[in-house]
Design a protein around this nucleic acid. Structure first.
Length: 289
DNA sequence: ATTACGGCACGTCATTCCGG
DNA sequence: CCGGAATGACGTGCCGTAAT
Protein backbone atom coordinates (compact mmCIF):
# COMPACT_ATOMS: atom_id res chain seq x y z
CA UNK A 1 0.00 0.00 0.00
CA UNK A 2 1.38 3.34 -0.98
CA UNK A 3 -0.06 6.41 0.59
CA UNK A 4 -3.00 5.35 2.59
CA UNK A 5 -5.73 7.88 2.64
CA UNK A 6 -8.54 8.33 5.01
CA UNK A 7 -11.39 10.71 4.66
CA UNK A 8 -13.39 12.31 7.37
CA UNK A 9 -16.74 13.75 6.51
CA UNK A 10 -16.43 16.99 8.39
CA UNK A 11 -18.48 19.51 6.56
CA UNK A 12 -19.55 21.61 9.50
CA UNK A 13 -21.25 24.65 8.14
CA UNK A 14 -18.54 25.94 5.83
CA UNK A 15 -19.20 29.48 4.78
CA UNK A 16 -16.82 32.37 4.30
CA UNK A 17 -15.31 33.68 1.14
CA UNK A 18 -13.28 31.79 -1.31
CA UNK A 19 -9.68 32.47 -0.43
CA UNK A 20 -8.50 31.66 -3.86
CA UNK A 21 -10.15 34.63 -5.35
CA UNK A 22 -7.88 36.83 -3.38
CA UNK A 23 -4.87 35.81 -5.31
CA UNK A 24 -6.48 35.52 -8.67
CA UNK A 25 -8.42 38.51 -9.82
CA UNK A 26 -9.97 36.72 -12.73
CA UNK A 27 -11.35 33.88 -10.70
CA UNK A 28 -15.04 33.45 -11.17
CA UNK A 29 -15.66 33.79 -7.45
CA UNK A 30 -18.91 31.93 -7.14
CA UNK A 31 -20.49 31.91 -3.74
CA UNK A 32 -18.54 29.11 -2.12
CA UNK A 33 -20.77 28.74 0.86
CA UNK A 34 -22.40 25.48 -0.07
CA UNK A 35 -20.08 22.58 0.26
CA UNK A 36 -22.05 19.45 0.58
CA UNK A 37 -19.54 16.80 1.42
CA UNK A 38 -16.26 18.09 2.60
CA UNK A 39 -13.49 16.02 3.92
CA UNK A 40 -10.19 16.23 5.56
CA UNK A 41 -7.57 14.08 4.04
CA UNK A 42 -5.46 12.40 6.58
CA UNK A 43 -2.23 10.63 6.00
CA UNK A 44 -1.09 8.29 8.68
CA UNK A 45 2.61 8.70 9.14
CA UNK A 46 4.70 6.32 11.15
CA UNK A 47 6.88 8.02 13.67
CA UNK A 48 10.13 7.15 11.98
CA UNK A 49 8.93 8.06 8.55
CA UNK A 50 11.52 9.53 6.23
CA UNK A 51 10.87 12.32 3.82
CA UNK A 52 8.16 11.66 1.31
CA UNK A 53 7.09 12.73 -2.10
CA UNK A 54 3.40 12.92 -2.62
CA UNK A 55 0.92 13.97 -5.20
CA UNK A 56 -2.31 14.88 -3.60
CA UNK A 57 -5.69 15.16 -5.10
CA UNK A 58 -8.82 15.72 -3.16
CA UNK A 59 -11.80 14.25 -4.86
CA UNK A 60 -15.13 15.85 -4.25
CA UNK A 61 -17.39 12.88 -3.93
CA UNK A 62 -14.95 10.11 -3.78
CA UNK A 63 -12.15 8.84 -1.76
CA UNK A 64 -9.26 11.22 -1.94
CA UNK A 65 -5.90 10.18 -3.08
CA UNK A 66 -2.40 10.94 -2.04
CA UNK A 67 -0.02 9.42 -4.49
CA UNK A 68 3.57 8.81 -3.69
CA UNK A 69 6.33 8.57 -6.21
CA UNK A 70 7.34 5.11 -7.14
CA UNK A 71 10.56 4.91 -5.24
CA UNK A 72 9.29 6.53 -2.10
CA UNK A 73 7.91 4.69 0.81
CA UNK A 74 4.39 5.23 1.88
CA UNK A 75 3.82 7.99 4.35
CA UNK A 76 1.47 8.28 7.21
CA UNK A 77 0.80 11.29 9.30
CA UNK A 78 -0.19 11.33 12.91
CA UNK A 79 -3.87 11.60 13.38
CA UNK A 80 -5.08 15.12 13.33
CA UNK A 81 -2.96 16.37 10.49
CA UNK A 82 -4.75 18.02 7.66
CA UNK A 83 -3.65 18.14 4.07
CA UNK A 84 -4.93 21.10 2.16
CA UNK A 85 -4.41 21.46 -1.53
CA UNK A 86 -5.64 24.40 -3.52
CA UNK A 87 -5.24 24.85 -7.19
CA UNK A 88 -3.33 28.01 -8.01
CA UNK A 89 -1.09 27.87 -5.00
CA UNK A 90 -1.42 24.60 -3.28
CA UNK A 91 -0.88 24.42 0.41
CA UNK A 92 -0.14 21.59 2.73
CA UNK A 93 0.00 22.25 6.38
CA UNK A 94 -0.50 20.49 9.64
CA UNK A 95 -2.49 21.57 12.60
CA UNK A 96 -0.29 19.79 14.99
CA UNK A 97 3.02 18.13 15.05
CA UNK A 98 5.60 18.48 12.37
CA UNK A 99 5.06 17.29 8.88
CA UNK A 100 8.37 16.14 7.67
CA UNK A 101 9.84 17.04 4.34
CA UNK A 102 7.14 16.84 1.74
CA UNK A 103 7.56 17.49 -1.93
CA UNK A 104 4.83 18.46 -4.28
CA UNK A 105 5.60 18.26 -7.92
CA UNK A 106 5.33 19.25 -10.64
CA UNK A 107 2.50 21.71 -10.07
CA UNK A 108 3.81 25.24 -10.25
CA UNK A 109 3.40 27.63 -7.36
CA UNK A 110 2.93 24.83 -4.95
CA UNK A 111 3.75 25.57 -1.37
CA UNK A 112 4.22 23.11 1.38
CA UNK A 113 3.96 24.69 4.72
CA UNK A 114 4.31 22.78 7.89
CA UNK A 115 4.90 24.33 11.22
CA UNK A 116 8.28 25.80 10.67
CA UNK A 117 9.05 24.28 7.32
CA UNK A 118 8.12 25.45 3.91
CA UNK A 119 9.10 24.61 0.42
CA UNK A 120 8.23 26.09 -2.92
CA UNK A 121 8.46 24.53 -6.31
CA UNK A 122 11.71 26.36 -6.84
CA UNK A 123 13.39 24.61 -4.04
CA UNK A 124 11.66 21.31 -4.34
CA UNK A 125 12.00 20.40 -7.96
CA UNK A 126 15.13 20.28 -9.96
CA UNK A 127 14.21 22.33 -12.96
CA UNK A 128 17.30 21.96 -15.05
CA UNK A 129 15.18 21.71 -18.13
CA UNK A 130 15.17 22.92 -21.63
CA UNK A 131 11.70 23.19 -22.98
CA UNK A 132 11.59 19.59 -24.04
CA UNK A 133 12.26 18.21 -20.62
CA UNK A 134 9.77 20.55 -19.08
CA UNK A 135 7.17 19.31 -21.44
CA UNK A 136 7.95 15.74 -20.72
CA UNK A 137 7.48 16.43 -17.08
CA UNK A 138 4.15 18.06 -17.64
CA UNK A 139 2.97 15.61 -20.17
CA UNK A 140 2.43 12.73 -17.89
CA UNK A 141 0.78 14.14 -14.91
CA UNK A 142 -1.66 11.45 -13.92
CA UNK A 143 -5.11 11.81 -15.34
CA UNK A 144 -8.18 12.16 -13.20
CA UNK A 145 -9.18 8.67 -14.08
CA UNK A 146 -5.76 7.41 -13.25
CA UNK A 147 -5.78 9.19 -9.95
CA UNK A 148 -9.03 7.56 -9.08
CA UNK A 149 -8.16 4.10 -10.16
CA UNK A 150 -4.56 3.86 -9.27
CA UNK A 151 -3.81 4.32 -5.65
CA UNK A 152 -0.34 3.01 -6.14
CA UNK A 153 0.91 5.86 -8.26
CA UNK A 154 3.95 3.91 -9.30
CA UNK A 155 4.08 5.32 -12.78
CA UNK A 156 4.15 8.92 -11.80
CA UNK A 157 7.85 9.18 -11.87
CA UNK A 158 8.21 7.02 -14.92
CA UNK A 159 9.48 8.66 -17.99
CA UNK A 160 7.60 6.83 -20.62
CA UNK A 161 7.81 9.40 -23.34
CA UNK A 162 9.49 8.20 -26.46
CA UNK A 163 9.82 4.69 -25.22
CA UNK A 164 6.78 3.35 -26.93
CA UNK A 165 7.80 0.21 -28.72
CA UNK A 166 7.34 -0.09 -32.42
CA UNK A 167 7.26 3.58 -33.21
CA UNK A 168 9.97 3.70 -35.81
CA UNK A 169 7.77 2.79 -38.72
CA UNK A 170 4.88 4.96 -37.80
CA UNK A 171 4.37 8.11 -39.75
CA UNK A 172 2.39 11.06 -38.55
CA UNK A 173 0.33 12.74 -41.19
CA UNK A 174 -1.48 15.95 -40.60
CA UNK A 175 -4.22 14.75 -42.85
CA UNK A 176 -4.68 11.32 -44.30
CA UNK A 177 -4.39 12.72 -47.76
CA UNK A 178 -0.98 14.29 -47.61
CA UNK A 179 1.77 11.88 -48.34
CA UNK A 180 5.46 11.99 -48.09
CA UNK A 181 7.24 11.93 -51.45
CA UNK A 182 8.85 8.61 -50.64
CA UNK A 183 7.25 5.45 -49.43
CA UNK A 184 7.49 5.55 -45.68
CA UNK A 185 9.40 2.86 -43.93
CA UNK A 186 6.30 1.21 -42.58
CA UNK A 187 4.46 0.90 -45.84
CA UNK A 188 3.70 -2.53 -47.13
CA UNK A 189 2.76 -3.36 -50.67
CA UNK A 190 -0.08 -5.75 -51.16
CA UNK A 191 -0.69 -8.11 -54.01
CA UNK A 192 -3.21 -5.72 -55.49
CA UNK A 193 -0.58 -3.03 -55.78
CA UNK A 194 -1.93 -1.06 -52.89
CA UNK A 195 0.35 0.21 -50.18
CA UNK A 196 -0.85 -0.04 -46.65
CA UNK A 197 0.46 2.48 -44.23
CA UNK A 198 -0.18 2.59 -40.53
CA UNK A 199 -0.68 6.16 -39.50
CA UNK A 200 -0.20 6.89 -35.85
CA UNK A 201 -1.82 9.46 -33.67
CA UNK A 202 -4.69 11.58 -34.88
CA UNK A 203 -6.84 11.47 -31.81
CA UNK A 204 -7.47 7.96 -30.97
CA UNK A 205 -4.92 5.51 -32.13
CA UNK A 206 -3.69 4.34 -35.44
CA UNK A 207 -5.37 4.40 -38.77
CA UNK A 208 -4.69 2.25 -41.76
CA UNK A 209 -4.32 4.26 -44.92
CA UNK A 210 -4.27 2.55 -48.26
CA UNK A 211 -2.92 4.13 -51.39
CA UNK A 212 -1.50 3.17 -54.75
CA UNK A 213 1.22 4.34 -57.07
CA UNK A 214 0.81 4.95 -60.79
CA UNK A 215 3.33 4.23 -63.52
CA UNK A 216 5.23 7.42 -62.76
CA UNK A 217 5.55 6.37 -59.17
CA UNK A 218 3.17 9.05 -57.98
CA UNK A 219 0.85 8.35 -55.10
CA UNK A 220 -2.87 8.45 -55.27
CA UNK A 221 -5.76 7.17 -53.27
CA UNK A 222 -8.44 5.25 -55.11
CA UNK A 223 -11.72 7.16 -54.98
CA UNK A 224 -13.92 5.06 -52.69
CA UNK A 225 -11.07 4.54 -50.28
CA UNK A 226 -10.38 8.22 -50.14
CA UNK A 227 -13.98 8.92 -49.28
CA UNK A 228 -13.98 6.23 -46.68
CA UNK A 229 -10.81 7.45 -45.07
CA UNK A 230 -11.99 11.02 -45.09
CA UNK A 231 -15.25 10.00 -43.52
CA UNK A 232 -13.51 8.01 -40.86
CA UNK A 233 -11.24 10.87 -40.05
CA UNK A 234 -14.08 13.33 -39.80
CA UNK A 235 -15.97 11.01 -37.53
CA UNK A 236 -12.94 10.58 -35.35
CA UNK A 237 -12.41 14.31 -35.14
CA UNK A 238 -16.02 14.89 -34.31
CA UNK A 239 -15.94 12.37 -31.52
CA UNK A 240 -12.71 13.72 -30.16
CA UNK A 241 -14.07 17.25 -30.27
CA UNK A 242 -16.99 16.25 -28.15
CA UNK A 243 -14.78 14.24 -25.86
CA UNK A 244 -12.54 17.25 -25.38
CA UNK A 245 -15.50 19.43 -24.49
CA UNK A 246 -16.72 16.91 -21.96
CA UNK A 247 -13.28 16.49 -20.56
CA UNK A 248 -12.92 20.23 -20.02
CA UNK A 249 -16.28 20.40 -18.38
CA UNK A 250 -15.29 17.66 -15.96
CA UNK A 251 -12.02 19.31 -15.26
CA UNK A 252 -13.66 22.60 -14.40
CA UNK A 253 -16.09 20.87 -12.13
CA UNK A 254 -13.28 19.05 -10.44
CA UNK A 255 -11.27 22.22 -9.89
CA UNK A 256 -14.28 23.98 -8.48
CA UNK A 257 -14.75 21.20 -5.98
CA UNK A 258 -11.13 21.47 -4.96
CA UNK A 259 -11.45 25.19 -4.48
CA UNK A 260 -14.55 24.79 -2.40
CA UNK A 261 -12.88 22.26 -0.25
CA UNK A 262 -9.90 24.46 0.29
CA UNK A 263 -12.18 27.24 1.46
CA UNK A 264 -13.88 24.97 3.94
CA UNK A 265 -10.66 23.55 5.26
CA UNK A 266 -9.14 26.96 5.68
CA UNK A 267 -12.12 28.00 7.72
CA UNK A 268 -11.78 24.90 9.75
CA UNK A 269 -8.15 25.64 10.30
CA UNK A 270 -8.96 29.15 11.43
CA UNK A 271 -11.47 27.81 13.90
CA UNK A 272 -8.97 25.33 15.26
CA UNK A 273 -6.41 28.04 15.72
CA UNK A 274 -8.94 30.15 17.58
CA UNK A 275 -9.85 27.23 19.75
CA UNK A 276 -6.23 26.57 20.53
CA UNK A 277 -5.76 30.18 21.44
CA UNK A 278 -8.66 30.25 23.85
CA UNK A 279 -7.59 26.99 25.44
CA UNK A 280 -4.14 28.40 25.98
CA UNK A 281 -5.61 31.46 27.62
CA UNK A 282 -7.74 29.32 29.83
CA UNK A 283 -4.76 27.28 30.81
CA UNK A 284 -2.74 30.35 31.66
CA UNK A 285 -5.56 31.71 33.77
CA UNK A 286 -5.85 28.54 35.78
CA UNK A 287 -2.11 28.40 36.19
CA UNK A 288 -1.96 31.88 37.73
CA UNK A 289 -4.73 31.16 40.15
C1' DA B 1 -9.44 54.84 -31.32
C1' DT B 2 -5.71 51.85 -30.86
C1' DT B 3 -2.76 48.67 -28.68
C1' DA B 4 -1.28 45.30 -25.34
C1' DC B 5 -2.45 41.81 -22.40
C1' DG B 6 -4.76 38.12 -19.96
C1' DG B 7 -8.37 34.76 -19.68
C1' DC B 8 -11.23 31.56 -21.87
C1' DA B 9 -13.09 28.22 -25.09
C1' DC B 10 -12.17 25.58 -28.80
C1' DG B 11 -10.07 22.18 -32.20
C1' DT B 12 -6.50 19.19 -33.00
C1' DC B 13 -2.75 16.07 -32.12
C1' DA B 14 -0.25 12.79 -29.24
C1' DT B 15 -0.41 9.69 -25.83
C1' DT B 16 -2.26 6.79 -22.28
C1' DC B 17 -5.86 4.07 -20.38
C1' DC B 18 -9.16 0.48 -20.45
C1' DG B 19 -12.57 -2.92 -21.82
C1' DG B 20 -13.54 -6.57 -24.95
C1' DC C 1 -3.65 -7.11 -28.53
C1' DC C 2 -6.67 -3.72 -30.54
C1' DG C 3 -9.90 0.02 -30.95
C1' DG C 4 -12.10 3.63 -28.85
C1' DA C 5 -12.38 6.81 -24.93
C1' DA C 6 -10.04 10.06 -22.05
C1' DT C 7 -7.03 13.68 -21.42
C1' DG C 8 -2.69 16.63 -21.49
C1' DA C 9 -0.41 19.93 -24.50
C1' DC C 10 -0.39 23.29 -27.95
C1' DG C 11 -1.94 26.84 -31.10
C1' DT C 12 -5.56 30.08 -32.29
C1' DG C 13 -9.29 33.33 -32.13
C1' DC C 14 -12.39 36.11 -29.46
C1' DC C 15 -13.52 39.22 -25.84
C1' DG C 16 -13.01 42.38 -21.97
C1' DT C 17 -10.08 45.67 -19.75
C1' DA C 18 -6.47 48.90 -18.88
C1' DA C 19 -3.05 51.93 -20.67
C1' DT C 20 -1.68 55.20 -24.22
Amino acid sequence: MEGMVEENGTSGGAGGTDPLTNSNSSAPAPAPHVVAATSIVQLNLPAQSPSAQAQSVIQPNQQSVIQTASNIQSVQLPKGNVILVSKPSSVIHTTQGTLQTLQIKPEPNTVVSTQGQSCTDDSCSDDESPKRKYREMLTRRPSYRKILNDLGGAEIADNRMGSKPGCENEVSLSTPLSFAPVIPAGALQTESGLHTLAVSGAAGGGTIVQYATNQDGQFYVPGPMLEDQTRKRELRLLKNREAARECRRKKKEYIKCLENRVAVLENQNKALIEELKSLKELYCQQKTE
